[in-house]
Write a protein that binds this DNA or RNA. Sequence first.
DNA 1: GTAAGTGCAAATGATTTGCAGATGT
DNA 2: ACATCTGCAAATCATTTGCACTTAC
Lengths: 138, 138
Amino acid sequence: MDQDIISELRRRGYRITTARRAVVSSLVGATGHLTADQVAHTVKATNPDVDTSTVYRTLGLFEDLGIVEHAHLGHGPAVYHLGKTHQHLVCEVCGAVIDVPVEALDVLALELRERYGFQIRPGHFALTGRCDQHAVSE
Amino acid sequence: MDQDIISELRRRGYRITTARRAVVSSLVGATGHLTADQVAHTVKATNPDVDTSTVYRTLGLFEDLGIVEHAHLGHGPAVYHLGKTHQHLVCEVCGAVIDVPVEALDVLALELRERYGFQIRPGHFALTGRCDQHAVSE
DNA sequence: GTAAGTGCAAATGATTTGCAGATGT
DNA sequence: ACATCTGCAAATCATTTGCACTTAC
């Protein structure tokens, strides 16, 4: 799985460096979403001399190549993830994150399309609200 | 309209200061969404000695009191607005902002509620995508 | 060998905070 | 009078950038 990405990079003419390998491992080894800083920490565990700015540049490159995506879950730093786009639901009380397939927004997308001529591209910003445990019973 | 807010503040025991008056005027006089910095600029036009940090504090207070809300339209600074909550649609090509009533998300809210036990509270983050002019015809 | 990639340090942009002084009530 | 507000300067947090040096190819 690491290898797929490495090959992809090579195939596209990008150089395979220690930093890039380490970022790939960090992303592949993680379940879920990581901030750039968390990626940097994981990376530094094995490669202490990789700089955080390089991690940012690497994540930026991977994003341009469609290998990773970033999303905003709240007021803090952005989070990065591999794999296909999904919509994040974030509980404003406990911070719990639920990943839902973008298809869950299909009906909404259609409605906004028809009514406002607007095509949404879900996933970039979370939908905030309250999880089951912290629901407000009106 | 300025006066409603001023009275509200007074009624709740907050002090009426030059800075607060000026922030209220700025918000009332503007159509749409302003960044804290834009509010600060408007304020400084008549009251040059009001500091930007005071504008932030004032907006923060107004938000706590339910007088204003802030939303995130993209990677830049947050925007503040008076009035009732609405959902922002932001074109990722031209930055155009469309305001839609939160009721447009009712169907989605219901679905997410049933399927994931999650209650969304729309409006805090924009939905990004493409406006009519910049639609991708797949 | 050479361009692409990197570390480092410094810059940026948005927002927050500590504190001593000013001001609304 | 006295607590609340404010200006100012400095701190913070996430992210970006300039530049000289390294390294993958």
